[in-house]
Design a protein around this nucleic acid. Structure first.
Lengths: 109, 109
DNA sequence: CCGGATCCAACGAGATACTG
DNA sequence: CAGTATCTCGTTGGATCCGG
């Protein structure tokens, strides 16, 4: 017993990973953090994402309570998304990832 | 400008994601955090991982400076792995993920 | 403007068999 | 004991076309 840190229970970390899983989900959350709300706005803020993927992800995220969707049915139709308390609570994780990424920035492919 | 948080630059977060990517990498890092060192020991500590995947991941992680490998060529051969400073520095992220997972524990399929 | 439906390509991951 | 080499397969992601 010479470690000072507690044992880490992988299953809780896996739960977190489940929510963050996929190529685009974190990008979308960050886009919303950064103040984007409208569908097109979000799409434009994330380089290379396609409408198809954005739709799929937003759908999943709505079902899993990560975003809240509201719609103004006038024409042209306007849809806005916002983070929920649930996804807001992911902020500390993203913050740590940002810090780590900044510290270790180097060419990656 | 009514947000208190800074804008998050997705590219740094993506760098971090690159290092943590894959089904098993984080489990392996956590296993090493938890004090496992030998190949078999690591394998036994991660439910359902196969030798194939463990080998592939450890190989990748060695090449990317996430683990250090040392070998005792006597018979039976013994190989030990340990985390590097580089991967140790991921601890704050994992810690936040653990906290989040604990707070939001619920059935996930 | 905001998507859904469909189909296809690419990649990650597992099974199996073999080696120093 | 500690791996490697293939091969197959399921899942993810992307392109394209269509609808409210």
């Amino acid at each position: 017993m010479c470690t000072v840190k507690d044992q880490i229970d992988i299953k809780y970390v896996e739960d977190t990973l489940y929510v963050l899983h996929g190529k685009w989900r974190l990008s979308i959350i960050i886009s919303l953090y950064n103040g984007n709300r409208r569908y097109r706005e979000i799409a434009r803020s994330i380089p290379k994402i396609t409408f198809t993927m954005l739709s799929k992800e937003l759908k999943f995220m709505e079902l899993n309570n990560l975003v809240k969707r509201s719609e103004d049915p006038d024409f042209p139709k306007m849809v806005e998304y916002e983070l929920t308390d649930y996804s807001e609570s992911l902020y500390p994780i993203i913050e740590k990832m940002l810090e780590w990424g900044k510290s270790h920035r180097k060419e990656i492919t």
